[in-house]
């Protein structure tokens, strides 16, 4: 490496540059935080039921089989748009009933098919979980996923 770059100069570049990029990153995150709260998500529709649904999602570690907005395990279908896939936009009641019925009927026990456990959720919990999935499907995700298959 060039003789002109001394070790102390390299050290100063490291610390100075890191602070520089960190400040930019924090600034952009702050702006993004604001954008999420005001623009890309329905903060005003973040009801107690949606929040409860998110906790049910977490308590059962759904993320370790499914993906949600593309993040999670890759063992089971994407659920960020499951509300749309089940036709929730056209027929909200029908989609809700189908989703609840699906979860209640697990595990399928079919040989050679991936098994979703039975989580024994109450009717209210199922509703809350569906509310959370509906809310999630309404986040402005820059058009992702490319199609309904998720």
């Amino acid at each position: 490496m060039s003789e002109r770059l001394t070790k102390s100069a390299a050290r100063n570049i490291f610390y100075g540059g890191t602070i520089f990029f960190l400040v930019i990153f924090l600034g952009l995150t702050l702006q993004s935080h604001n954008y999420i709260v005001t623009t890309s998500t329905n903060e005003d529709e973040l009801t107690a039921s949606v929040v409860a649904g998110k906790h049910i999602w977490e308590r059962n570690a759904c993320i370790n089989c499914h993906t949600l907005l593309g993040e999670g395990a890759y063992f089971a279908p994407e659920l960020g748009n499951v509300w749309v896939r089940y036709g929730g936009k056209e027929d909200p009641e029908g989609a809700r009933d189908s989703l609840k019925a699906w979860m209640q009927s697990q595990p399928s026990g079919i040989e050679g098919r991936r098994q979703m456990p039975q989580f024994n959720l109450s009717d209210q919990e199922l509703d809350e979980l569906v509310d959370f999935l509906k809310w999630t499907s309404e986040i402005n995700t820059q058009g992702w996923p490319p199609n309904e298959a998720g």
């Binding site: 540059g17 890191t18 990029f21 993004s32 890309s40 998500t41 907005l69 593309g70 986040i139 995700t141």
Partner: peptide, 18 residues
């Protein structure tokens, strides 16, 4: 760090971020 800190952007594509 110069690349990695702002490289976080590649996770902020489809999650509701700008």
């Amino acid at each position: 760090l110069f690349t990695g800190i702002l490289g976080t952007g590649h996770h902020y594509l489809w999650i509701g971020t700008p």
